[in-house]
């Protein structure tokens, strides 16, 4: 565990907490894409199949449980909570899951570290995580007024990915045999998807203006 990895995980955790804060205290999920949240729940469900078979550390298991629990409860809140679900605008969140899920599944069947069920599912989860933010980014572009919490949520998610890249660079130079092409390439793609968002996020921050993405 290096500082970049820990900072990345903490940023990821912070993003989840920001979203839960919005849902719990403001009782709103306005501007949040249910599609993206459902994809994340699927990402964690398929990636953490090893949770009971491969013990890595207490930290690892705890974080897995947090990400699994939070992602499924967020989906539950947006879909089923009496008050929260009212703020969900289905007509704006139109991205189709299977446009992302099916190509990722096919790619996982072709490109994986080992052709076993668990490894194919793991590769699938890596590919899917890389593109799972797309429905959220599309929704942001359609939203006239992006509230601060939603902006911070997406920013923290992007920051988490950028920190993971630093973690890989660090690990590559400090560990022997540390080469993971699947995670590296997908992680790079995933981070690049945030580039546009980052640009407008920093612009709005610099100019002290409300965040708004151009159509």
């Amino acid at each position: 565990m290096n500082i970049f990895r820990l900072a990345g995980d903490m940023t990821h955790l912070a993003s989840v907490l920001v979203l839960l804060l919005k849902i719990h205290t403001i009782k709103s999920c306005a501007g949040i894409s249910l599609k993206t949240q459902e994809l994340y729940a699927l990402v964690f469900a398929t990636r953490y199949l090893d949770i009971f078979t491969d013990f890595i550390s207490l930290y690892n298991t705890t974080m897995k449980l947090i990400f699994l629990g939070s992602s499924f409860s967020i989906v539950w809140y947006i879909r089923n909570h009496k008050i929260v679900s009212r703020s969900y605008d289905k007509s704006q969140d139109t991205f189709r899951h299977y446009f992302l899920i099916i190509p990722c599944l096919l790619l996982a069947l072709l490109v994986n570290e080992k052709f076993t069920f668990k490894e194919v599912m793991w590769a699938f989860s890596i590919y899917l995580e890389a593109v799972a933010i797309l429905p959220q980014l599309v929704l942001l572009q359609r939203t006239r007024n992006i509230d601060n919490l939603t902006g911070q949520y997406v920013f923290l998610l992007g920051a988490y990915r950028a920190l993971y890249i630093l973690n890989w660079i660090y690990r590559y130079f400090t560990e022997t045999h540390y080469v993971h092409w699947i995670t590296w390439v997908s992680g790079l793609v995933q981070t690049l998807l945030y580039a546009d968002f980052f640009y407008y996020y920093f612009e709005s921050w610099k100019n002290n203006k409300k965040l708004q993405l151009p159509a």
Binding site: R47, D54, I56, N60, K64, K114, W122, Y164, T176, H177
Partner: peptide
């Protein structure tokens, strides 16, 4: 040491 297919990242 070969890490095999142990995925130690989250």
């Amino acid at each position: 040491p070969s890490e095999g297919n142990i995925h130690d990242e989250l």
